[in-house]
Simulated assay, not measured.
Amino acid sequence: MVTKQVMPINLDLAPEVDRLLLELGVGPFVRETVTSPIGRNDAWAGVTENGRDVFVKRLTGRAGDTQGRLRRLLDFEKYAADASFDNVHWPQFIGSDEENFIVVFERIDDAVNGATLMVDETFTLEHAHQVGRAIGHLHSTPPAATVDLDDTTPGFPPVGLLEGIPLSMFLRSSAGEIEAWRLLQNDPELIAAVRRLRDAEAQAPKVPSHCDLRVDQLLIGPEGLFLTDWEEFRLADPARDVGAFAGEWIYRSVLDLVTNRGDDAFLDTEFTHDLVLRRGVDKMRRLLPLVHEFWRAYREVRPEVDDGLAVRATAFAGWHLLDRLIAGALSSARLSAIQRAAAGVGRAALVNPEKFATTLGFGGDR
């Protein structure tokens, strides 16, 4: 598995990790093999004394949130054990310590993270096709009667926070975060669009959904495509996953406005307003075929969808960019021009999803 690594958290400070590995029969970590992939949770990857290559994650965060994420992750394992998939793969689950919020998986060897492929411009139409089929299969596979999945609606987009953030949140926010929330809260048309999306989502059919689909949750290797990080898995509007994939590529196209990726001729060109607009169209046109191929593959697997799916997915794609705005502002003193540009594109898709659905290729059955 190829991903960014940092120095591992000292396992002497987390004895429960090796204790669980011993209980599961795979043996403790060989310390010199251990690395820590970057992420929001504590994580260790390495070889155990029994020769098993494993990935260990300890969920972190507020107690209630952590408990919910662990429950949904374990729900997915129960669901997947009873489901019959043609095209969905996930890392093999080895075991867990629910008291300490630790889960253990077989590590996927020789796999590349989808985010790496995106940045290296090696994420292909075939990769997009694989993802589309995988998500289509997931959405088409209901849980067994004995599996009770979470059907609560995910918290984002947060209508309440668009009206005002609590004092406790304000006090721990960066200046960039406060600026981002102010930008959203002072936009009544945007807030109305979020309300419409939430109302439409409440009426939508619920299917097994990943609900946190990003390219860095994808591992692609010789054995095929693996979907990872099932902490938000639940019964939900399928438009969330479809929109998230599209949103990833729209966001990438905006980030590329200030790069020369795919157009070396612009290296020494002065940026004017007209040029920025033209580059925006060109960058999006270059990446949208990946969204089109995802959708085509998705509909091959799941030809029957509800009438509003395309419009809701487009609105969720728009929200995805605004969510990235908030996440990117966490450690910022102020919003950058590129962050504001991404927010503007996201707003346009969220406020006018009917118009943008055709641009994303969601207008037809294929």
Results as ranks from 00 to 15, higher is better:
residue 26 V to C: 05
residue 93 F to S: 09
residue 110 D to S: 14
residue 32 E to K: 14
residue 218 L to D: 03
residue 207 V to I: 01
residue 301 V to G: 00
residue 80 A to Y: 10
residue 1 M to S: 01
residue 155 G to S: 13
residue 63 A to E: 14
residue 325 L to Q: 07
residue 191 I to P: 02
residue 47 V to T: 14
residue 199 D to T: 13
residue 208 P to C: 03
residue 103 V to A: 11
residue 195 R to M: 06
residue 149 L to K: 05
residue 102 I to H: 07
residue 253 S to R: 12
residue 345 V to L: 02
residue 301 V to C: 04
residue 316 F to I: 10
residue 303 P to C: 10
residue 198 R to I: 04
residue 283 K to A: 00
residue 259 T to W: 04
residue 19 R to F: 01
residue 20 L to S: 00
residue 234 R to S: 00
residue 22 L to V: 13
residue 195 R to H: 11
residue 44 W to E: 04
residue 155 G to N: 12
residue 165 I to F: 09
residue 27 G to C: 08
residue 37 P to C: 07
residue 291 V to R: 06
residue 144 A to E: 09
residue 245 F to A: 08
residue 306 D to Q: 10
residue 142 P to N: 06
residue 255 L to M: 14
residue 205 P to I: 08
residue 236 A to M: 03
residue 360 L to Q: 01
residue 49 E to A: 14
residue 10 N to G: 06
residue 140 S to Q: 08
residue 55 F to L: 11
residue 338 I to M: 11
residue 362 F to K: 07
residue 169 M to F: 12
residue 51 G to D: 12
residue 339 Q to H: 03
residue 247 G to E: 09
residue 170 F to T: 12
residue 255 L to N: 12
residue 361 G to N: 00
residue 198 R to Y: 02
residue 325 L to F: 06
residue 346 G to A: 02
residue 345 V to G: 01
residue 365 D to S: 15
residue 345 V to D: 00
residue 357 A to W: 06
residue 364 G to A: 13
residue 239 A to Y: 00
residue 183 L to Y: 08
residue 199 D to Q: 13
residue 41 N to S: 13
residue 165 I to L: 14
residue 57 K to T: 12
residue 157 P to S: 05
residue 181 W to A: 03
residue 342 A to M: 05
residue 244 A to N: 10
